[in-house]
């Protein structure tokens, strides 16, 4: 006890020399704490993931074993085909390949239309001076606040009057006009960071506006377009409300509706979690793959709206 003031005095006297190892110690502790926290948080992310995959590989009798067995024994790879075989037993046309084709059809058409429309509109807002431009842009931004459910009923009535309920049109054709406001916003922000020099040089060389847009501009905004493509792909792949409202025939269902259909018809009384987790994994797999492949662009696209807006 009595030594304490003396130690303190000594420390303050020799100041800088004593501080270096102490600071290094503190830094090391700091690092350890940082990584410990990072790992702790990532467990929160990873454990549910692991549980999904682990469940998808269990036989039915292993589902309820206590304590939980993380690595199934035996590993039931057959859950993956079996889930879809069970499904096509009650809906003969809804095979795995059909579901995949449906999902891809919706996703790719909607994505193509949205990317084209959105990049044209964003270019218009970013590069040309025209009356009411800023007013229109503010209106565009304010539509982001409009909940989808408000416009849903009249939009449904439009498609109903066109007699296009139970077709894919409401999910893909309308996209030509209804490109997401957030996507336009994001792309415009990106366009504003690109100098006009290239375009002006091309105009001097006699290119027309479409040539400039396609040959000069699109390659320059490729990173943003790729990021958007991933986000839009994800949005359409996962879109549940659209197919729920517009599609009635079971054989037109995309993956998410097939999952819902499975849950409602085959899994109501005794939930078949192993099959549902297998289907969920199948549904998530292309998204994860795409995300890993394009993540460099993806992160950029995700952050541009939030940081530079």
């Amino acid at each position: 006890m009595a030594a304490t003031p003396a130690v303190a005095a000594e420390k303050s006297m020799s100041g800088a020399r004593v501080r270096t190892p102490r600071m290094r110690m503190r830094q090391t502790l700091d690092r350890i704490l940082t990584y410990a926290l990072l790992i702790f948080f990532s467990l929160f992310v990873l454990i549910p993931f692991a549980y999904m995959i682990s469940t998808s590989l269990k036989t039915e009798d292993q589902l309820f074993i206590w304590p939980i067995r993380w690595i199934p024994d035996p590993i039931a790879w057959s859950n993956y085909p079996q889930a879809f075989i069970e499904l096509s037993r009650i809906a003969p046309n809804l095979t795995f390949w059909r579901i995949l084709a449906n999902t891809l059809f919706i996703t790719l058409l909607a994505m193509t239309a949205e990317l084209i429309a959105v990049s044209l509109v964003a270019y218009g807002f970013a590069r040309f001076q025209f009356p009411l431009r800023n007013t229109l842009f503010i209106i565009l931004l304010s539509t982001m606040m409009l909940p989808g459910i408000v416009t849903l009923i009249p939009t449904f009535l439009i498609w109903r009057n066109l007699q296009l309920i139970n077709t894919y049109d409401p999910l893909v054709t309308g996209i030509w006009l209804g490109g997401g406001a957030w996507a336009v916003f994001l792309l415009r922000q990106f366009l504003l960071t690109i100098p006009r020099d290239f375009e002006e040089a091309a105009y001097i060389d006699g290119a027309n506006v479409l040539q400039v847009f396609v040959i000069i501009m699109l390659p320059l905004i490729k990173p943003a377009l790729l990021a958007l493509a991933v986000l839009i792909f994800q949005g359409n792949w996962n879109n549940f409300m659209g197919p729920l409202i517009y599609l009635n025939s079971v054989d037109k269902f995309p993956m998410v509706m097939a999952l819902k259909f499975f849950q409602e018809s085959l899994s109501k009384e005794a939930p078949k979690w192993h099959y549902m987790m297998a289907m969920s994994t199948v549904m998530a797999a292309p998204l994860l793959l795409l995300y890993f492949m394009a993540q460099r662009y993806f992160i950029e696209g995700l952050t541009i709206g939030g940081v530079k807006g």
């Binding site: 044209l120 509109v121 001076q129 025209f130 565009l140 408000v150 009923i153 009249p154 309308g174 006009l177």
Partner: peptide
Amino acid sequence: RDIARGYAFVLPWIFGFLIFSLYPFVYS
């Protein structure tokens, strides 16, 4: 020229806004 091009480029959104935002908004 600038004005004509500007309106031409934002045309998809103007249609989309009128048909899928403004009209449904008022009608609902």
